[in-house]
Write a protein that binds this DNA or RNA. Structure first.
Lengths: 226, 226
DNA sequence: CGCATCGTTGATCAATTTCAATGCCGGTGG
DNA sequence: CCACCGGCATTGAAATTGATCAACGATGCG
């Protein structure tokens, strides 16, 4: 299965206290609500925290001097974002939808103490991330546009799809250009491929952001070559 | 700077005992010589060790069911390979040239004790790897063939090039098809781009494996668009 | 020496990008 | 309330890049 969007960690430890405002849960972690469009951190920022996504969707991006942009990942609930390089963040991260993230002090990643269990979870998440990124290499380098879009929609369907009688309802909150920059395509190609799938009866599009997967097997068949 | 080939760690801790045969250095680490063409591990193998490259070059690869292959990274001295996912290796790894690698028990990555310093180094290497892979995303998704090859040669030159009066001598021990599978191109395109650079006077090729960078700036100009 | 593998080159083809225009929708202000 | 505006999505046609198909050359090894 390709296109892990980002890194999933083991089931969430139990959180007792929750305040809908940014609230300190303990000195180790605290909740942080985040409105759509707001940045969580920028490339080059001092990395104070790593974040576990509770709700919503985030976008991790890197920009080249000349303006070309790569979406590194879309982060969904359960994913961890903000792994530092040295002391700095090496991507921009902003909220595509309203989000709630759980911030962990960056020290939890660096040191076993005082919370060895959290340290272990975050380290595992980092290792998982490496594996997931390697999957994404396959996606970027050896798949056609149709295979990329099919895989992409399938992953979204598996992770946030809601099964219904008429198919799997999938929210696609990111813009077409984000999908393009994630998959190494152009906006136009993304559009065309969506319409191609729509005309083939694989999906329907209520709006550009609301899709229904009507033929899961058909979509799977397009996700892998042969 | 794009195309970090793999993960560089901090300067090597001092090693006193060295045996040219596979030799236990301590219960935490041991040297492992490896001839060109030999595998260090396979995809799906139980991950017993992570390896620090001392000498030589290794190839990390993933293969899809249908035979398509992605070279995930080329590992050079200072790089770390074999980060596990769960308990398993998720790539094949074999030696392109004769190598010497330093094996660390996988537990050094999982646990702080008994060697917290090593644990910290390996964890950092994993984080660095994430960053390096994100660089490679840019390479794979938003660069032209010429930009990819130029970046690739530049990185090799920086990491293993030997400056001389006539330019920077660079060993390119991997085959063309490996370069192609690394950059998401075909063998033919890799070849053509090399000849194009040769005809433009940017490089010379004594053999397919021995290149001399004659115009560093020219090559840099082709590595980035604009 | 002959075979096998790898590298190189050429010609054609197909996929995707590019360029251009139009449509759609939500927000804003008259 | 409605018209206009701006951003995003979609579609079409042309251009370009890189893939594919095919042949040949070089190199190393049994």
């Amino acid at each position: 299965m390709y296109l892990k969007l980002a890194t999933t960690v083991e089931p969430q430890i139990e959180i007792d206290q929750f305040s809908s405002d940014a609230g300190e849960v303990s000195d180790q972690r605290f909740y942080h609500p985040l409105h759509a469009g707001r940045h969580l951190f920028h490339e080059g920022d001092e990395a104070e925290n790593v974040y576990e996504v509770e709700r919503g969707m985030l976008r991790l991006a890197r920009v080249m001097e000349n303006g070309r942009r790569q979406i590194v990942a879309f982060a969904l609930p359960g994913d961890v974002v903000g792994f530092p390089e040295g002391n700095l963040h090496h991507t921009d991260c902003d909220a595509i939808t309203d989000c709630v993230v759980l911030a962990h002090r960056r020290s939890a990643l660096d040191r076993c103490n005082p919370n060895p269990e959290l340290h272990r979870r975050l380290t595992r998440a980092a290792l998982h991330e490496i594996c997931a990124m390697q999957d994404h290499f396959m996606m970027l380098s050896s798949k056609s546009a149709a295979e990329k879009i099919a895989s992409f929609v399938l992953t979204l369907a598996e992770r946030i799809g809601e099964p219904a009688t008429d198919g799997i309802h999938v929210d696609i909150p990111m813009r077409r250009v984000d999908i393009a920059d994630f998959l190494g395509l152009t906006t136009e190609t993304v559009c065309r491929t969506f319409t191609q799938f729509r005309k083939a009866g694989l999906i329907t599009l209520e709006t550009a952001q609301k899709a229904v997967v009507r033929d899961l097997e058909g979509l799977r068949a397009r996700a892998e070559p042969e």
